[in-house]
């Protein structure tokens, strides 16, 4: 069998493609782009919650939030590591992010206005991420699938700490309950957008499904997320901000309202509430750290020279 036949055969048998195997250029490019975007999302995703670490109300919440944000850094690095197996260079990927040549998830372009946002991000944003990511543990590219297994194990802590935080607030004062409802109102629709455009307008999906990079369509995963979230919202005692949301016994699923795709496109295109700040922050962190990276490299070079 030639390389192409081995590749097709590997996919047909539902086995994993490994970095040194032959693969179509399009597969390699798609994989690098998807893994890089995913990595960038984890790195940018540190910012909305990181902003609350110093203001967390108790030492317990501070320690939890610190661990969570550290996990997100870790997830970004697992993914950059997977991208490097395909010949990408993580320094180059970071530059592409900073220069706006590669994207990250639009969800992180919304602001975190109150501490309830930390809880709702854990519950809804990480909940949506888990829906998206669990099937990626069976993605056809081995290093990506393995990174996703580690990530999914850790995401479960993220979602549970968020939900627990919200339950605590809901058993507090009326003002705290109002804060949770307000955060739910602001994050619900952007969370639904995390699954990407509707299937009919997602031109790359079919190829990604054929290559077994993706396992389920955007709409399928979005529906799964809505069905999961409704009883969770009820248990919490919050209302999801969608008057059209109701159980459809015929379909065995919840119907839900129309998503504002114009807003989604606007945020993707860079005009969301926080796009400028997120990239500026990342750029500043990169620039501020440059001298440290150079000094460490110079120190290592000097020491290895001295050993010779």
């Amino acid at each position: 069998m030639n390389g192409e036949q081995v590749f097709e055969d590997t996919l047909a048998k539902d086995q994993r493609v490994e970095p040194r195997d032959w693969m179509p250029d399009g597969y390699r490019k798609t994989m690098i782009r998807q893994i890089a975007q995913h990595a960038h999302s984890e790195i940018i995703g540190m910012q909305p919650e990181g902003a609350w670490i110093t203001r967390a109300p108790t030492l317990r919440r501070k320690a939890i939030l610190l661990a969570k944000v550290q996990d997100e850094a870790g997830h970004g690095l697992y993914l950059y590591s997977a991208a490097e197996t395909l010949g990408a260079d993580r320094g180059d990927l970071t530059r592409r992010l900073i220069e706006g040549r590669q994207k990250y998830s639009s969800i992180f372009n919304y602001p975190t206005l109150t501490f309830a946002d930390v809880g709702v991000i854990g519950w809804l944003v990480d909940g949506a991420a888990i829906c998206n990511q669990v099937p990626l543990c069976r993605s056809s590219f081995g290093p990506y699938a393995r990174a996703m297994i580690r990530i999914c194990k850790e995401e479960s802590f993220h979602q549970r700490q968020g939900y627990e935080l919200l339950m605590t607030m809901m058993s507090g004062t009326a003002a705290q309950r109002a804060m949770v409802q307000d955060a739910t109102d602001r994050w619900w629709w952007p969370s639904l957008m995390m699954f990407g455009p509707p299937d009919a307008e997602s031109p790359n999906s079919a190829q990604s499904m054929a290559w077994k990079i993706k396992r389920h369509s955007n709409d399928e995963l979005r529906q799964r997320f809505v069905d999961m979230s409704v009883p969770q919202a009820e248990a919490l005692g919050v209302t999801l901000p969608d008057p059209a949301l109701r159980w459809n016994a015929d379909r065995g699923h919840h119907d839900f309202g129309e998503i504002d795709w114009a807003e989604f496109k606007k945020v993707i295109a860079g005009s969301g509430p926080m796009n400028q700040e997120r990239l500026a922050h990342r750029r500043r962190a990169d620039e501020d750290g440059a001298w440290v990276r150079e000094a460490a490299a110079a120190h290592a070079a000097k020491r290895s020279g001295a050993q010779r």
């Binding site: 590591s81 197996t85 990174a147 290592a300 290895s304």
Partner: peptide
């Protein structure tokens, strides 16, 4: 388990 970038072995 994966890879990472560092200036030297200790790091």
């Amino acid at each position: 388990v994966g890879s990472l970038r560092a200036a030297d072995h200790e790091m």
